[in-house]
């Protein structure tokens, strides 16, 4: 399913480097181009250290980019100021991975959710209270929970509070950074169902960051696969699973253990040798060359560009 629409977020040649001392530079995000259309969910997958969280954080302005730009509704978000900046901060929200660390332990749930409402002056007094109750019931909690503190809740409930907080300011775009990986399986399904329901109800656009590919496939319209700071493949979630083109995507897909014993017994796994190289001194040429089965001489010399090899299916690999 493709959602055809105007791009809500446009990421152009975005780079985010970190200085790690002694003149070394960590290239967390290196020249990423991506468009997110209104109302769609883009999944962003990759292993730890591939830069997916950095990308998400740079988009919502938690980081300043080293180069390149992020356009939100056509405006460069890192150049916004005054009223326009405030408006962007309202429209773009984030849900964090760790529901234990991302809620202020000294604030009640009422204040956690109400903080954004106050900052943006959306509701006052009685209306504010009602809005908070409405949000609580929207995420499956009830008003008795409003006066409690975060430590009184379980992980799944806390994640719901984090979602209510993000929704409080009526955003258009939410970056979900591994929203379920800290939760138990049965609770994961609850939170995912909630996120998808809310998307339909409130016409939200998501950037869904995760490393659990089967869950990402389930929630996303399109999926971008990242490896060492670059997007190596971008396709609809159907295409990506049916016909992964990049050798890394193929290995990643085959590595996921499927909860079905027969499939597991039959499956031929593509085992990747070794570990992900350090992003401080990434390999020359294609980033994946050190672990690739099909590596050719050109792969060590020239970094492949992300190109459209089939309709709406982009891949950065010299094989195509």
């Amino acid at each position: 399913m493709m959602v055809e629409g105007m791009p809500l977020v446009e990421i152009k040649n975005l780079k985010k480097y970190f200085n790690v001392g002694r003149g070394a530079v960590l290239k967390a995000v290196d020249n990423v181009n991506l468009q997110i259309r209104e109302g769609e969910t883009v999944g962003l997958v990759g292993e730890s250290g591939c830069g997916k969280t950095t990308l998400g954080r740079t988009i919502v302005r938690l980081y300043e980019p080293t180069a390149g730009e992020v356009l939100f509704e056509g405006k460069n978000v890192h150049k916004l100021a005054g009223q326009q900046l405030k408006e962007f901060n309202r429209k773009a929200q984030m849900i964090f991975q760790d529901p234990y660390a991302s809620l202020n332990p000294r604030m009640t749930v009422r204040d956690i959710i109400g903080e954004g409402i106050d900052i943006h002056g959306l509701y006052k007094n009685k209306e504010r209270t009602e809005r908070i109750y409405e949000l609580l019931s929207l995420v499956g909690l009830n008003k008795e929970h409003a006066n409690r503190f975060p430590h009184e809740f379980s992980g799944g409930q806390r994640q719901r509070i984090g979602i209510a907080r993000a929704l409080a300011v009526e955003p258009k775009f939410i970056v979900c950074d591994e929203p379920i990986s800290a939760l138990d399986v049965s609770i994961q399904a609850q939170v995912i169902n909630l996120l998808m329901e809310l998307q339909q109800k409130l016409k939200l656009t998501y950037l869904f960051i995760a490393h659990d590919l089967s869950m990402v496939k389930y929630v996303s319209d399109r999926i971008a696969v990242m490896y060492l700071g670059v997007i190596v493949e971008l396709a609809t979630s159907e295409d990506l699973h049916k016909k992964p083109l990049h050798p890394y995507t193929q290995a990643l897909l085959s590595a996921i253990p499927i909860p079905d014993p027969e499939t597991e017994r039959k499956k031929k796994r593509i085992l990747l040798e070794g570990d992900v190289p350090s992003p401080i001194n990434p390999p020359k040429g294609c980033r994946f060359v050190t672990r690739c089965r099909y590596a050719k001489p050109i792969c060590t010399e020239q970094q492949p560009e992300l190109k459209e090899v089939e309709k709406n299916h982009f891949v950065a690999c010299h094989l195509y």
Binding site: M1, S154, G156, Q157, V185, S186, I187, Q188, A189, Q190, I192, N193, M196, S214, M215, K217, Y218, V219, S237, H241, I258, P259, D260
Partner: peptide, 22 residues
């Protein structure tokens, strides 16, 4: 438990089965 994990061929239009409560 078995139903709350998405299998790769699960359709997006279907809801994940979740176990309500804690």
């Amino acid at each position: 438990l078995l139903m709350s994990v998405p299998t790769p061929d699960l359709d997006k239009s279907k809801k994940l089965a979740s176990i309500e409560g804690t």
